[in-house]
Design a binder for these strands. Sequence first.
DNA 1: TCGAGTCAAGGCTAT
DNA 2: ATAGCCTTGACTCGA
Length: 305
Amino acid sequence: MKIGYPCVNETLDCSAATTFRLASYTDERVVTTVTNNLACLQRILEFNVQHGLLFFRIGSGIVPFGSHAVNTFPWQTEFAPQFRAIGDYIKAEQMRISFHPDQFVVLNSPDPGIVERSIAELVYQGSMLDLMGLDSTAKLQIHVGGLYGDRDVAIERFIATYRTLPEAVQVRLVIENDDRLFSLRDCLRVHEAVGIPILFDNFHHECLNHDEPMQEALRLAAGTWHPTHDGVLMMDYSSQQLGERKGKHTSSLVEERFREFVTHLNGLDVDMMLEIKDKEASALRAVAILRELGLAAPLPLSASV
DNA sequence: TCGAGTCAAGGCTAT
DNA sequence: ATAGCCTTGACTCGA
């Protein structure tokens, strides 16, 4: 089991998400920004290895305007060596990597322009995985999209669009059950049509479900991942912040809830992304708990905790 | 130097 | 019809 956290490291004094405004776009700023972001990404990955965190979600903004028409700079070739070096490090340390394109990526939109921009963003993020030399067990995770008043039509439109995607995107794309619109059961319908794996979010499942017990939901989601092509089930873990709106993530790991959740795994191997506000701090607590339970590998000898 | 407003992109829900 | 929310950091400008 690999444990991770998304995008941002709060311990280090660098950011892999520096950017700038569209209005101030220049090729030179792309160069300086990507250089800075990749250098910071490498530092974050090294921090993670030293602390036994072998799953990481890379932020969408490594290359500013990476899928926008304004950016015609050939960053794919100019930064090929840097991407390759990071990919080599990831493979050497056997880390798992994901991207989570944000809410603007909507493959089932009825607006062709939105679909076109969404595909461009997936191609951009997938091409970073290609440049790193990572295989199809590194994933791009998105939601099914909008309802537009008709669930069946919305799902059919997702399926139709999925079939038109470039293969490099198809082999890496996974869908995540969300907390308001498309449940695990809806995602399973999409999976049955096109074979896409389902990234399981335990908290979303608590918010929106059809009475599938957690252990059963995990089993269903895990069954959508091909062991060699896709790797073990990726999941997002979070829990409800008490006293807040339903769906609000906790600010830090609630240890008792986490221990309870782990019992539902019942031996299932997963790679777990902790979607918790305090990032690596909670991820480290999770690793400690799993280690105590014998479910996570001990720290490497080189680790400095 | 610091605080406030704003930033490429979407869609749902409450009012 | 329209504002607010999701979720979030970082840029940018003006004081």
